[in-house]
């Protein structure tokens, strides 16, 4: 399966990335390539230019700024997995990183790429040949959503493992673009819309993830459910955090974006965590997501897993 033709840029600094990204009309960042290149082989993404982060300075590595932890966007998941400081402070992050794909994908895949990865759907993540059977779906420029049989909508599911962990850690992003750098909460990266799930503007890219020091003052855990112990994307993934009287929970694999479970969190705010209260929270988990049948796994099953994984994760940090 061949990659379509594109131009390759390998800038050395942030400014170079921004200018390469704004050169043509369809430029994309290439980090580890483990998501993007598969999609390009399938011809569901056809950027004209790939802007490689490989030679970009100051975009890789883990450091402290005050009590905040800053992780460069091109830091590999393997580097995160192997960092004992992160493991101590933010177990959910490390657990999520080490649950991504296989060790091969973790050695290649980056934090930025994981967060910005495309959404997934059984009608979308298929080869060009495979997709000839149906009309072009909305996400690749057609009209129809084959999952729900409606026009001009897309329910493809966000399935990255790391985002929910960072959501419960209240992480934010450092983004650089034509208008210079800005910082934004991670949750704002996601549009909640299947066709263009990531909100970055033209020429913008993520340079780093910032985890506030306060996040280290709670306990966290990531619980992934997939059939195999390696390679598989999450069917459902749940991250939880608890500290100073509150509980946070976030999910992947259930909606067009990674989602925070606000009803669940509200229910448990200031509550004593008992079997009964956790169960009450678990029962509210599914309210956070609009699950569509984008995979073979039944919607009802995923809904149930949301609660189950929450309880499992909480049990582990109680």
């Amino acid at each position: 399966m061949h990659l379509p033709i594109f131009t390759h840029r390998q800038p050395a600094d942030f400014a170079g990335v921004v200018s390469a990204l704004t050169e043509g009309s369809g430029a994309k960042v290439l980090a580890g390539g483990t998501d993007l290149l598969v999609n390009m082989k399938h011809r569901i993404e056809m950027p004209e230019t790939l802007v490689s982060l490989k030679k970009v300075a100051d975009i890789r590595g883990i450091s402290l700024e005050g009590d905040a932890t800053v992780i460069g966007a091109a830091t590999t998941l393997k580097e995160i997995r192997q960092n004992s400081e992160l493991e101590r402070k933010f177990p959910a992050l490390v657990q999520a990183a080490m649950s991504v794909g296989s060790y091969r994908h973790q050695a290649m895949g980056t934090l930025g790429g994981n967060l910005c990865q495309n959404t997934r759907c059984r009608f979308f993540n298929q080869s060009w040949q495979w997709r000839q059977v149906r009309s072009l779906c909305y996400k690749v420029g057609g009209e129809d959503c084959h999952v729900i049989g409606r026009k001009h909508t897309c329910f493809s599911t966000y399935s990255g493992d790391v985002a929910p962990a960072l959501l419960v850690l209240d992480a934010s992003l450092r983004i650089t673009g034509p208008d210079g750098p800005r910082e934004a909460p991670l949750s704002t990266l996601y549009s909640g819309e299947g066709r263009t799930p990531v909100t970055l503007g033209r020429g913008e890219f993520v340079t780093a993830v910032v985890i506030p020091g306060a996040a280290a003052r709670g306990k966290s855990r990531y619980e992934k459910f997939s059939l195999r112990g390696s390679i598989d994307f999450p069917i459902v993934g749940a991250a939880v955090w608890r500290g100073d009287g509150s509980v946070r929970a976030a999910y992947t694999g259930v909606d067009r974006a990674p989602v925070r479970a606000s009803e669940l969190e509200a229910e448990l705010a200031g509550q004593e965590l008992t079997d009964a209260s956790l169960k009450r929270g678990a029962n509210l988990a599914h309210k956070a997501a609009k699950i569509a049948p984008t995979s073979v796994h039944p919607v009802s099953f995923k809904r149930e897993l949301m609660g189950v994984l929450f309880v499992k994760a909480m049990r582990d940090i109680s």
Binding site: R122, N125, L227, R228, G229, S230, I231, D232, F233
Partner: peptide, 11 residues
């Protein structure tokens, strides 16, 4: 292979 998912060494 990804979607078919036969067992890996983990299983």
């Amino acid at each position: 292979f990804l979607d078919y998912g036969f067992p890996t060494a983990m299983e």
